[in-house]
């Protein structure tokens, strides 16, 4: 592990007119670290994620990313071409709804292979072999490689989306409610898979979720957001076991015990 962060975010704010999307968010993310951003709907966590992934430009503040060559780049000063290149090589984005992150009308294999082709791989056999490998890593049978994701269950689609994102070996993955909308048993399998992949690949990830159990299982660090602001942050188990902010205490005490 290096002694330099991967991402440095400083005083990031996004306003929609006079309404606050997120305000004055500052943090560093290190390689291999998973940061959970929790809060209820409208707390600004998705706005923050969209700003960080440059899908949305913030109103003020900076975010710098350490590129593979070690150079620090200011995300919001990069050209769109550079940002899009980063997005399909060194980054991943896992959407809550897999249909937003997959091409539903092309086969599973092509969904996984697209990023490879986008970065110039022109060998069909190699692309397909990589796709097979990734499908197996996300526990999708090889014989489904030519099926379209339309024919997949919700859990399979989500796993396919993950494979599609990880195939280029990104260093940073953004996830927006990755287990939202899935059955509990399917969720558990997906979480376990994500946890394994994140550890094995040394991925850094920013996971937006309203589910504290997801945060506990996946992340080492956590930020709690309310009304666009970070009200508490720290080690995930510290925040969950010894919540300090009134809002965090409310969140933690609202968890249903099974």
């Amino acid at each position: 592990m290096t002694d330099e962060p991967l991402l440095r975010v400083s005083a990031l704010s996004k306003f929609y007119g006079s309404r606050v999307g997120c305000e004055n968010v500052t943090f560093d993310l290190w390689p291999g670290e998973v940061l959970a951003v929790v809060g209820e709907s409208g707390s600004g966590k998705t706005t923050l994620l969209n700003c960080l992934s440059t899908r949305l430009l913030p109103s003020s503040g900076t975010a710098s990313y350490r590129m593979r060559d070690g150079q620090w780049r200011e995300l919001y000063r990069m050209s769109e071409a550079e940002r899009r290149f980063l997005m399909r090589t060194d980054w991943g984005f896992v959407h809550q709804n897999p249909a937003d992150g997959l091409r539903m009308t092309v086969s599973a294999g092509a969904n996984v292979g697209e990023r490879l082709m986008a970065v110039g791989d022109r060998h069909y056999g190699r692309i397909r072999a990589t796709a097979v490998d990734w499908l197996s890593r996300v526990e999708i049978d090889e014989d489904r490689i030519d099926d379209e994701p339309r024919a997949f269950s919700g859990g399979m689609r989500q796993r396919l989306q993950i494979a599609r994102n990880l195939v280029t070996g990104p260093r940073l993955v953004f996830m927006d409610e990755p287990t939202g909308g899935l059955d509990v048993s399917v969720q558990a399998r997906l979480l376990d898979l994500l946890r394994g992949l994140v550890t094995d690949l040394g991925l850094a990830a920013i996971v937006v979720t309203h589910d504290l159990a997801v945060a506990r299982l996946l992340s080492q660090r956590m930020m709690v957001m309310k009304d666009g602001r970070v009200v508490e942050s720290g080690l995930t188990d510290r925040v969950l076991d010894d919540p300090r902010a009134p809002y965090t205490q409310l969140l933690v005490s609202s968890i249903l015990q099974v």
Partner: peptide, 9 residues
């Protein structure tokens, strides 16, 4: 014990 492990602030 939990403070010594960083689990409690």
């Amino acid at each position: 014990l939990k403070m010594l492990y960083g689990n409690y602030a």
